Simulated assay, not measured.
Amino acid sequence: MQYAFAARGWHIEPWEETAQMDKHKDIPLTGPKDSSFRHYCSCYPGGKPTYNIKLKKEDEKLFRQSPEKYQQTNSVCQLCYNLDRYVALWGTTNCTNTQPFQYSKLLMERYHPEVLKGKCDLPWLCERVKR
């Protein structure tokens, strides 16, 4: 997200009331354990909590199903953005950043060290699509 904001000229800085939840269910990677806001990584055990919220039956009438070409369960965030993969999933770059960038070695070491070791089971990050 930092890259998206920076590419658009926004200034960002750490927010002390937040925690980054990672591979441990109750222990944040960064930030206080009792933080007001938590950001969940794609590697969080069981998946991101809000992705598992089910729609109440009485709320089904509040919206229509999106067109099939926009229905997608994969997410592209938290240092896992890949433009080739985005285009393969969505078929266009209309709603995304098209500026080329590469994640720094420091960020990769911090969040996805397995990728630097040649192991990658994160198709949204590592899979390169032939165009």
Score class of each variant (00 low, 15 high):
residue 91 G to P: 00
residue 109 E to N: 15
residue 3 Y to Q: 14
residue 99 Q to D: 08
residue 121 D to P: 01
residue 9 G to Y: 01
residue 30 T to S: 12
residue 62 L to N: 10
residue 85 R to I: 02
residue 58 E to K: 04
residue 3 Y to M: 12
residue 45 P to C: 07
residue 19 A to G: 05
residue 104 S to W: 04
residue 109 E to K: 15
residue 90 W to S: 00
residue 107 L to F: 13
residue 26 D to I: 04
residue 99 Q to M: 09
residue 106 L to H: 14
residue 36 S to Y: 08
residue 63 F to M: 05
residue 90 W to G: 00
residue 57 K to V: 01
residue 84 D to T: 09
residue 63 F to Q: 04
residue 23 K to T: 15
residue 100 P to Y: 00
residue 15 W to S: 09
residue 109 E to R: 13
residue 20 Q to F: 15
residue 109 E to I: 01
residue 103 Y to P: 02
residue 3 Y to D: 10
residue 23 K to F: 09
residue 103 Y to Q: 09
residue 111 Y to Q: 08
residue 29 L to H: 09
residue 84 D to Y: 03
residue 24 H to N: 14
residue 124 W to T: 15
residue 12 I to L: 10
residue 21 M to K: 02
residue 65 Q to P: 01
residue 68 E to S: 06
residue 66 S to C: 13
residue 24 H to L: 13
residue 118 G to A: 05
residue 76 V to F: 15
residue 97 N to V: 04
residue 55 L to A: 06
residue 67 P to A: 03
residue 44 Y to P: 01
residue 46 G to T: 08
residue 96 T to P: 00
residue 12 I to E: 07
residue 61 K to W: 01
residue 126 C to R: 01
residue 87 V to F: 01
residue 16 E to I: 04
residue 106 L to E: 15
residue 121 D to I: 07
residue 126 C to E: 05
residue 38 R to Q: 11
residue 4 A to F: 06
residue 123 P to G: 05
residue 34 D to K: 08
residue 6 A to V: 12
residue 42 S to N: 14
residue 64 R to G: 11
residue 4 A to C: 05
residue 24 H to F: 09
residue 95 C to L: 12
residue 56 K to H: 02
residue 60 E to K: 08
residue 83 L to V: 04
residue 39 H to M: 12
residue 76 V to L: 15
residue 127 E to C: 09
residue 4 A to N: 04
residue 120 C to D: 12
residue 62 L to Y: 06
residue 78 Q to E: 15
residue 129 V to T: 10
residue 131 R to E: 09
residue 62 L to W: 03
residue 103 Y to N: 05
residue 109 E to M: 13
residue 29 L to F: 15
residue 114 E to R: 10
residue 85 R to W: 11
residue 131 R to C: 03
residue 79 L to M: 12
residue 95 C to D: 12
residue 41 C to E: 10
residue 69 K to C: 05
residue 131 R to D: 05
residue 33 K to L: 02
residue 87 V to L: 06
residue 119 K to F: 10
residue 54 K to D: 04
residue 84 D to G: 15
residue 20 Q to T: 12
residue 91 G to Y: 00
